[in-house]
């Protein structure tokens, strides 16, 4: 889908083993498949169905989304940062598109 924008805010870890708060938001209509257009036809479902956060290839959180997640999906969670490296955030769209964003941690 065109024009989808991920936003990510991660605290900066100050030492190995630090816990950081992660917030993510992505612009997406999360079309539930239950709404009708002006002519009464069902608007086909199109949602982000999965979101993952990994750090240096290890999983932080793996989220399965249903249509009951609000427009512009928002997540907040806590990650452990064992060593300097990179967070990779990945959103999976029903249409097959994948959106990613990264965040580097150095201390």
């Amino acid at each position: 889908m065109e024009g989808v924008r991920p936003r990510v805010r991660v605290d900066s870890a100050t030492e190995a083993g630090a816990v950081v708060e992660v917030k993510t938001l992505i612009s997406h209509p999360m079309e539930s498949g239950l709404r009708r257009d002006g002519d009464g036809n069902l608007i086909p479902r199109q949602i982000i169905n999965r979101f993952t956060a990994e750090y240096n290839g290890e999983m932080v959180i793996d989220v399965t989304l249903e249509p009951a997640i609000s427009t512009n999906p928002y997540f907040e969670f806590d990650a452990t940062v064992p060593e300097p490296g990179t967070f990779t955030f990945t959103w999976y769209d029903d249409d097959g598109d994948v959106y990613t964003s990264t965040n580097d941690q150095s201390f």
């Binding site: 750090y55 793996d62 969670f77």
Partner: peptide, 9 residues
């Protein structure tokens, strides 16, 4: 929604 927590959660 379902959250599965990994080793770094």
């Amino acid at each position: 929604v379902t959250f599965a927590f990994g080793p770094l959660a």
